[in-house]
């Protein structure tokens, strides 16, 4: 625990004592607010709910911004050689991984916290459902941390932040896209019979089951389900575990 905390502290310093975290938070705020007010037709909306006007855009933002925060986690260690220092300290690899992951998540949490004007506005305009807003934030946080966890895994493979960014964005894009309502709709409407029908159903099932968008979307809509929790917990743990495997096998 203590070791996680020490690594966490150092990484948080690396984010917040350099412009990195502020640039990220600034970009996230600009984009999420403008999407909310311009495309979400936030002010014209009938109800005071935020799921379609605000949270719905977050997976698309985190698809790029998650990798942007996470790309330095291990690729920087690989490039500078500091991984040799870190991993010869009396700490375990998983402690280092979790410390780093949590630090990146803190940047995400700070960014989400800075969106509080949106909450103030809906409260001013109407009488929003507090539980739904909470679950929306939870969903957004989970989608964001999932993309950071995936980026953490990718960054363990490479010493180049750029490669890590590009690969992670592509992977996250894919994971968001397969659950987008448009794609699911398309899959549902393909006319097919026999084997193709089974394939179509399987694809639908997989797309829905693995997408950050579908699982996040449920939370945005205020639906708290066990399988959503299991999905995010499993996704993040898998990515972090795989990171340790990659880090170990790279040196073997």
């Amino acid at each position: 625990m203590k070791n996680i905390w020490v690594v966490f502290k150092r990484e948080v310093q690396a984010y917040f004592l350099t412009p990195l975290a502020y640039v990220f938070i600034f970009i996230f705020l600009i984009l999420s607010m403008s999407l909310c007010f311009v495309f979400g037709r936030f002010l014209e909306g009938e109800d005071a709910s935020l799921d379609y006007t605000f949270f719905q855009f977050h997976p698309w933002l985190f698809m790029v911004l998650g990798p942007a925060i996470g790309m330095r986690l291990w690729s920087e260690e690989n490039r500078e050689g500091t991984i040799e220092l870190l991993l010869t300290m009396p700490i375990s690899t998983w402690q280092a991984i979790i410390g780093k992951f949590l630090a990146a998540c803190l940047v995400l949490v700070s960014a989400l916290a800075m969106t509080f004007p949106v909450i103030l506005t809906v409260n001013y305009l109407g009488d929003p459902d507090g539980g739904k807003i909470f679950s929306g934030y939870l969903g957004s946080l989970l989608v964001g941390s999932a993309s950071i966890a995936l980026t953490c895994l990718v960054s363990a493979f490479t010493r180049s932040q750029v490669i890590c960014l590009v690969v992670s964005v592509v992977l996250c894009f894919f994971l968001v896209l397969i659950g987008s309502p448009q794609l699911l709709e398309f899959l549902r409407n393909i006319p097919a019979t026999g084997l193709l029908e089974t394939l179509r159903l399987a694809a639908l099932e997989i797309a829905d089951g693995f997408s950050l968008m579908s699982h996040g979307g449920r939370l945005f809509g205020g639906v708290l389900r066990l399988d959503t929790a299991v999905f995010f917990a499993a996704f993040i743990s898998f990515c972090l575990y795989a990171t340790s495997v990659v880090i170990r096998s790279k040196r073997a």
Partner: peptide
Amino acid sequence: YLPENAPLYSDMTVESFLRFTAELR
């Protein structure tokens, strides 16, 4: 351990880096 090429976290100062490694120890 002093690794070859003496890797360091370049976003830190000498003092904060040493404090960090001491704390890890």
